[in-house]
Design a protein around this nucleic acid. Structure first.
Lengths: 136, 136
DNA sequence: GTAACTGCAAACACTTTGCGAAGCA
DNA sequence: TGCTTCGCAAAGTGTTTGCAGTTAC
């Protein structure tokens, strides 16, 4: 199966690479339409999947919200803000415990292919706003 | 708001309590219909949410598959089998690393309300089957 | 009696897919 | 030219919701 470098695929790729946050498929679709108004949602989804399969980007599944995509392939934790929905990187984390658990599981016959860790809570912006407005 | 103990709510509660695995809403619905064929999907969803809000059960969001529900409230990790889709408990894990990270994040102004860890891979049954049949 | 709850069905959000047309190699 | 990819729209999946009728308290 011969892979083709279409305008649309290049566009999605560029938008991902130029994006340091963790856009959803729909956010990429919105950005893509600014440059290429005729691009379709299906094409964006297909190309995001293509890039994930090709190992160019990572898919981050977030409970209760659509999937996000990450152009940073280095393994890292995320924080999902319950209030604004933003997905933020947790920097500088060592994975010794998850790795230890994975090793122990492997000894029991599990094949561990990955570990997903997601912190849930409020980001600094939202926790500040929350205390200011006394809500919740 | 006065809470009522309806037949349907009791049934969902009992099915969850008698269930050591991690059924999805649809699995609970199927079980419920065996005892109460007129129960509706909406009622099962509403009651599962009710029980989650009431702190009676936990909701486990699994990337790429419907939500699972867990009658075990003790914090623990899970393994999601890519092959059979089963969700399994990871027993006897200490959470020191996640807790350390959470503490460090808290110092930066994040409000951490929870940590979700999900291992992805193959359970012993499936990893054995996979190597036997040489697939993938 | 009354308001929380139910069953039903339609709506919902996100994602995938079938199809005929378009365009890259 | 041929086969991958596109745009479009419809279907799929899991979940929520509006409503009129029911039922627990």
């Amino acid at each position: 199966m011969q892979v083709r470098n279409t305008q649309q695929r290049k566009l999605v790729m560029d938008l991902m690479r130029g994006n340091l946050s963790h856009p959803t498929a729909d956010e990429i679709y919105a950005l893509a339409r600014r440059k290429e108004p005729r691009i379709s949602r299906g094409t964006v989804y297909r190309n995001l999947h293509f890039l994930v399969e090709a190992g160019e980007i990572a898919r981050i599944s977030v409970p209760g919200s659509p999937d996000h995509f990450d152009s940073c392939l280095a393994e890292h934790h995320h924080l999902h803000c319950r209030r604004c929905g933003r997905l933020l990187d947790v920097p500088g984390v060592v994975f010794s415990l998850e790795q230890a658990v994975a090793a122990s599981l492997a000894r029991s016959g599990f094949v561990i292919e990955g570990v997903g860790v997601i912190f849930k809570g409020l980001c600094p912006d939202c926790s500040g706003a929350a205390s200011r407005s006394c809500e919740e």
